[in-house]
Amino acid sequence: MTLLCASGLNVSLGAKPVLRGLDLSVAAGEFVGLIGPNGAGKSTLLRAVLGLLPFTGSILLDGDDTAAMKARRRALKVAYLAQEREIAWAVPVETVVALGRAPHRPGFAAPTEADRAIVDEAMRRMDVTSFRHRIATELSGGEKARVLAARALAQDTPLLLADEPTAGLDPSHQIALMRLFGELAASGRGVVASLHDLGLAARWCSRLVLLDNGRIVADGRPGEVLTPQTLRAVYGVEAFFGEAGGAPVVHPLDLSGPAGG
């Protein structure tokens, strides 16, 4: 089942074209890592899918065209974990996570038992239950990131988009988050996460999409996308390639020399 299908997608920010005729489709069960250098268009792609930017071309969510889709209906199909970890007011952690249930409740309806169970489950999965009563604005950056991730999980959508979700997390929570996204995909959802950490991307994603200059330059299994040639051409770096426990290991080592390649 195709959860996301973008075709001929063009987005400009001001006069500058950021995405040029991009085609991407994501099926249920896939954990897609969106990689590429700064300015490649990763965040722009995610924001266009969410309807936050004007675009030309078409974007289908779950088979429905997003052009005429109401915000509320879109919110039942796709959740978003933003790069900015903004929490404006000093509300408790569980209040933040419970916000994820808002699109599921009409008008002023109170949360149901099922809503509470989903919120509890999201907090458990992101390991934030122990500080559910603390004030969210007083948490450390990494704790805040996990609370906001739990919020997105609580939205309980078929597709989850995450913009640099692992930035600022310690290694154990980075791995836990990547594992969780893998589990979500394995349970029949789709996850698209923009990532800068190629090591995490190589190890945990089921598929990588490499963007450069608004276009997809490679798309496939991590081992196919992350090659010495693509890293040199797109990032300008040399990397160590290995294998451990049946999954690829990629670690950037140094800039490619002027004569490199």
């Binding site: 936050l52 933003a82 404006a88 808002a102």
Partner: peptide
């Protein structure tokens, strides 16, 4: 307004017009 606590883009992704 509750949803806007998390910023306007996150609020929009939660169905806020």
């Amino acid at each position: 307004l509750d949803a806007l606590t998390l910023g306007s883009e996150t609020a929009a992704s939660m169905g806020v017009d």
